[in-house]
Every structure is written in structure tokens, then in C-alpha cells.
Nucleic acid binder design. Structure first.
Length: 338
DNA sequence: CGGTGTGTTGAA
DNA sequence: TCAACACACCGG
């Protein structure tokens, strides 16, 4: 673990405390943090001190950070623009915290070279891992983590797992790990998204099964030629979640309903992940030799109701130079969902 | 009811 | 593409 991370316990307005690793090695404020003079409550501080301060004080203070907008209650909103459309990243108590969130979002959306609010080093090992982490997740997932204020928690979890995977706390460089596709670091290999599905009521109901849309099942999990132990009752598939935990599901075809389903093991997953109707479950496969399957779930965002989160077919491969993986297909640009 | 984040507009 | 502003609407 790094010694350079501090934890900031946020106000108790929200039950969760947020730990933010502020790595002084990897980033520094672009602008010196000025004393933030904010009015306690925005509205109507119409004090008549010498008649100078008039009703002008209901104007919200602008942020010095890009993508950060003031909220009426003194908190800070974060937004990023993508394809002529605003994407809301969430609200934060501290302006700096908001700026960090924007930095994460903009890197996730536009790549490592994107302009953030911070001067940052892109040559540290940690930044490599974070780049990898960002690359691993879809834009939706990144936004989701930021909104839930869970990004740094997830990132740290990923880092821990990554470095453990490389043995005995010895920190192996990303290049080194990637070069060794058969090594213990393979589990964190890049993945590409196979498909996503919005969880239906019956997927989390009493039927104890998850329906895999036929098109995706037949394309990605053809029962005939699965390498996993296959019986007449189907196959057992192992998936790794974003925290490195392995989930084993029975996968089979139900003649009665003409559907492909995950059965045994699914209920535990639902319970453990607190999966609810409308959440998005995504399935990935490692790019490397192992073809490891991954499963990830994402809470339905509150605002994407009515307007569905498109279960997009996106492929996230190594778009970044530092990830010059062996000569597979020219790991093309950073294509993603929209 | 407080606050979020969306609708909207105008500037860059 | 971006921030500023107002306020519908949402969850608690």
C-alpha cells in the first residue's frame, strides 16, 4: 500500500465516508488552492452593512475548476460534456474533491492525455494502474462509481488485488505484468465487453435464474463447445468480479422457455451484490490467452430511468501506448459506449 | 422538504 | 464545449 494516501472523512450528511488518496507524487493542484470564501447559505444574505451589500449575494460562486459547478446548497456538482450532451458526474462536498472527480471522468472519457484540473504525472506506476483500471471499465461504470463516491475505494481494491496478484507485495511494473500473460497477473488482463443486460424483475426474483439474452448466449457462451465441464444439464462457468472474487454459475438451456440461463450460484450473487431490477450486469472476457470471464454489476442510475442505459456493445482494448501488449489485433482506438 | 441534476441559454 | 442559472422533481 502506498504511504501517500490520506483519508478524508466527509461530512456525515451521507452515511458513507469517502477515502480520497491524494497522491502528492502523482498530482498537484494546478492552481494554488485559494482561501475559499463561501457564504454559509447562499440565499438572501442581504445584510445592510452600510448599504453596500445588496441582493447581489444570491449569486453562486464559480469554481476555479473545469467541469465543477456550484450547487445552491454550497456543494459542488461535476459535469462533463460528451457528444453534445452533458453527463452528470455527481455532487461533492468539497470543491477539490469535485475537481478530482472531473479529472477521473475526463480521463475515463477522453483518455489519459485529457486535460484535467491537475498537473499529473503519467509516468508513475500508480498512474499506469489507474489507467488500466479506467480502461477496464466502461464510461457508465466510471460515472457510476464517481456518483456513488466509490471510485477510489474500487481503485484501491483493484490496486491491492493487482499487486497481490503479482506476488508477495513485490510491485511489478505494469509492462512487466502485461508481458507475462501466463503469470499470476493475468487475472487483471484487459477485458472486452461481451454484453450488458438490464436486470429484470424475474432475474432477481424467486426463480433463481438469470436469463441471458439468446443472441448473446449463443454468440459468447455456445453450450456446444465450451471448454468448461459440460454435462447434459449445462456447464459451470466461472466469472471474476471487479473485486477479484470468483463466482461460479451453472449455465444451461431451458427447453421449456427456450432461454439460456444462469441458475445455481445466481441467487447468491444477487444477494451479495444487492442486485435490483434495473441494475446493469456486464459480462466481459479477458483479451489474453486465458479468456477469463468477468462479471460486473452496476446500480441503475437514478436519472436514467425512462431513458434507458443502452446496453451497448463496446470494446475497450488497449488504446493507450503504454499498454503495448503483444501483437494481437492492432488494439485500435478507444471506442466506447455512448 | 432539501437537494440533485436537468432544461435551457448564451458565451467562448 | 462549456458554465450559469432556475426550478421540476425525486427520494427521504
Amino acid at each position: 500500500m502506498d504511504g501517500n494516501s490520506i483519508c478524508i472523512d466527509e461530512l456525515s450528511s451521507t452515511s458513507d465516508s469517502i477515502s480520497i488518496p491524494l497522491s502528492s507524487k502523482s498530482l498537484q493542484l494546478a492552481a494554488p488552492p485559494q482561501s475559499l470564501c463561501r457564504l454559509g447559505s447562499d440565499t438572501s444574505v442581504i445584510l445592510d452593512c452600510e448599504g453596500s451589500i445588496k441582493a447581489e449575494s444570491r449569486k453562486l460562486p464559480s469554481s476555479k475548476y473545469k467541469g465543477v459547478v456550484p450547487q445552491p446548497n454550497g456543494r459542488w456538482g461535476v459535469q462533463i460534456y460528451e457528444k453534445h450532451q452533458r453527463v452528470w458526474i455527481g455532487t461533492f462536498n468539497e470543491e477539490d474533491e469535485a475537481a478530482m472527480a472531473y479529472a477521473v471522468a475526463v480521463k475515463g472519457f477522453r483518455g489519459q492525455d485529457a486535460v484535467t484540473n491537475f498537473k499529473q504525472r503519467s509516468d508513475t506506476e500508480d498512474s499506469d494502474v489507474e489507467a488500466f483500471f479506467l480502461n477496464f471499465h466502461s464510461k457508465d461504470e466510471i460515472v457510476d462509481m464517481l456518483r456513488k463516491h466509490a471510485y477510489y475505494e474500487e481503485l484501491e481494491r483493484y490496486k491491492r488485488r493487482y499487486f497481490h496478484a503479482n506476488g508477495d507485495g513485490k510491485r511489478v511494473s505494469m509492462m512487466e505484468a502485461l508481458g507475462d500473460l501466463s503469470g499470476p497477473g493475468r487475472a487483471v488482463m484487459a477485458c472486452h465487453l461481451l454484453f450488458q443486460k438490464e436486470v429484470t424483475p424475474s432475474d432477481v426474483g424467486k426463480l433463481n435464474r438469470f436469463v441471458i439474452p439468446k443472441q448473446h448466449a449463443e454468440k459468447h457462451f455456445p453450450l456446444r463447445n465450451l471448454t468448461s465441464p459440460t454435462t447434459s444439464k449445462g456447464a459451470l462457468l466461472n466469472f471474476i468480479d471487479s473485486g477479484g472474487e470468483v463466482w461460479r454459475f451453472r449455465y444451461s438451456y431451458w427447453n421449456s422457455s427456450h432461454s439460456y440461463v444462469l441458475t445455481r450460484g445466481w441467487t447468491r450473487f444477487v444477494k451479495e451484490k444487492s442486485l435490483r431490477t434495473g441494475d446493469i450486469v456486464s459480462f466481459r472476457r479477458s483479451v489474453g490467452l486465458e479468456k477469463q470471464l468477468h462479471i460486473n454489476c452496476m446500480r441503475r442510475s437514478r436519472l436514467s430511468r425512462g431513458r434507458t442505459v443502452h446496453p451497448v456493445q463496446m470494446v475497450r482494448l488497449f488504446g493507450v501506448d503504454i499498454f503495448t501488449v503483444s501483437a494481437t489485433t492492432g488494439g485500435g482506438g478507444d471506442s466506447d459506449d455512448g
